[in-house]
Design a binder for these strands. Structure first.
Length: 456
RNA sequence: UCCUCGGUAGCUCAGUAGGUAGAGCAGGUGGCUGUUAACCACCUUGUCGGCGGUUCGAGUCCGUCCCGGGGAGCCA
């Protein structure tokens, strides 16, 4: 039975027989045998395999092995006499499954720039850092599902193709069967009988299920056709959107805080080897940062208080601060990184700069919005209590220039058994970025899609 | 999309006042060694991002387009 290398490395070596299958990272020859470093993706560490020159295929094959070749090794696990590893496997047989021509194989046994690796997205998960990102990303997804499931939330699969436009979340990719550009208008009938696009948010549909099942969450792909070229934006990304009935802004903040602390703890505990790599090679002090986020309370300011703090700081900002403007990156960075040095929740933004569905506060000027800002990333969570009062919502939609007929279903939720409810969106890749310390969001999703880039 | 810096060997980069290119690593060959970014010796490698222009002559100067880094906007 084939075993995973993480298991072989974990068990005490007692001359037990093992079979492992993986890819050769490097080969070192000595007088009478060779060392192979084999990695099967189950963990960061490689398994050191001792290939003795007595092996039948030693001269013809073993000595030709190089980075990238795939092998199946059978042998005996032994205590390693040298430093660097506790376990090593002395091979009885090494079957070469696939060669990787060293003249052409792009990965070398040395550091590569992330920019270069991005050009070979089909090979980059075979590197230490990108493999670690993939494992941590998977664990984070698991932790998020666990968090919500443990609390009795139901996962709802909201549509990827949607006809709900102008959710205030940005440009939509259009979905059409028309073959030629422009043909969609008039000459061809729309497949859905109306304009459709890829979802920019599952929130509105999640609200439908929250007002039936109580607490729900979505976890799926999201698309923005914005021409954004930054280290924090993708055209296709994954978003988690919980939505809770009978829940106000305070309840929303509490859930978001608990969720972040829960998933961070889980990953720090269960991905320690990969996290150690990020801590020492990607972002120094990463683990200390994460532990402090897990332990410390998040700071909380209202937008109005935040504006006061920014003005009181007497700092020169490129964009002068004044009540009513949206907070710029430099403002968020000052508050989050300099003033507090921890995650910061900003609530109660001016109604004029937030979307129609956010609940209007009693002052009539602000809405029950909340953004969670995190050092180094900026906004990681954006949410609000939703407007549950029919008349108020209708007025806000009209003010926003929204076609009411298109949103009858959404207004109906306020017409029949309406309840206070709230929710938020968490950018999954931004979370992975925060957890791994990876500087560019294109490295934390397997196949990044950005303007002008979607190779496979 | 805007500002800014960059694109030279498979990778990371150097290239002086315009005179048709170099290092380290990788790769190849040989040697050595319970090695672990192994080590030592020798050898190979380039449409200098694309197109156009100035010039006797362009990696180097000018224009334009593409791509990447950093910052900004939009946001998650």
């Amino acid at each position: 039975m084939k075993q995973r290398i993480n298991v072989v490395l974990r068990e005490e070596p007692q001359e037990q027989r093992v079979i492992v299958a993986g890819w050769v990272r490097t080969r070192r020859d000595t007088g009478t045998f060779s060392f192979l470093e084999v990695n099967d993706g189950s963990c960061l560490a490689n398994l050191q395999v001792i290939a003795d020159s007595s092996l039948a295929n030693y001269e013809e094959e073993i000595k030709r092995l190089n980075t990238g070749c795939s092998v199946i090794v059978t042998g005996v696990a032994k205590k390693s006499p040298a430093k660097g590893q506790n376990v090593e496997v002395h091979a009885d047989t090494i079957e070469v499954v696939g060669w990787a021509d060293p003249e052409n194989y792009p990965l070398q046994k040395k550091r590569h720039s992330f920019e270069f690796l991005r050009e070979i997205s089909h090979l980059r998960p075979r590197t230490n850092a990108l493999g670690a990102v993939a494992r941590v990303r998977s664990r984070l997804a698991w932790a998020i599902n666990s968090f919500f499931q443990e609390r009795g939330f139901f996962q709802v699969h909201t549509p990827i193709i949607t006809t709900s436009d102008c959710e205030g979340a940005g440009e939509m990719f259009q979905v059409t069967t028309a073959r030629e550009a422009g043909a969609a208008k008039g000459t061809h009938e729309e497949f859905f009988g109306r304009k459709a696009g890829l979802t920019v948010s599952g929130q509105l549909q999640a609200e439908v299920y929250a007002l039936a099942l109580g607490n729900v969450y979505t976890f799926g792909p999201t698309f923005r056709a914005e021409n954004s070229n930054t280290s924090r934006h993708l055209a296709e990304f994954w978003m988690i959107e919980p939505e809770m009935a009978f829940c106000d802004l305070a309840c929303n903040m509490e859930l978001a805080t608990d969720m972040l602390k829960y998933v961070l703890s889980d990953v720090v505990e269960n991905c320690s080897e990969d996290m150690a790599l990020f801590d020492s090679f990607i972002e120094k002090g990463l683990l200390a940062k994460l532990r402090s986020v897990i332990e410390k309370d998040f700071a909380h300011l209202t937008y109005t208080e935040a504006v006061d703090k920014l003005i009181a700081s007497k700092k020169k900002f490129e964009f002068p601060v004044k009540w009513g403007i949206d907070l710029q990156s430099e403002h968020e960075r000052y508050l989050c990184e300099e003033l507090f040095g921890c995650p910061l929740i900003v609530t109660d933004y001016p109604a004029t700069i937030k979307p129609f569905y956010m609940r209007v506060n009693d002052d009539g000027k602000t809405v029950a919005a909340m953004d969670i800002l995190v050092p180094g990333i900026g906004e990681i969570v954006g949410g609000s209590q939703r407007e549950e009062r029919y008349e108020v919502l209708e007025r806000r939609m009209l003010e926003a220039g929204i076609e009411l007929e298109e949103y009858r279903w959404y207004l109906d939720l306020r017409k029949y058994g309406s309840v206070p409810h709230a929710g938020y969106g968490l950018g999954f890749e931004r979370l992975v970025q925060f957890v791994t310390g990876m500087a560019n969001i294109r490295e934390v999703i397997p196949f990044p899609r950005t303007p002008g880039f979607a190779p496979c």
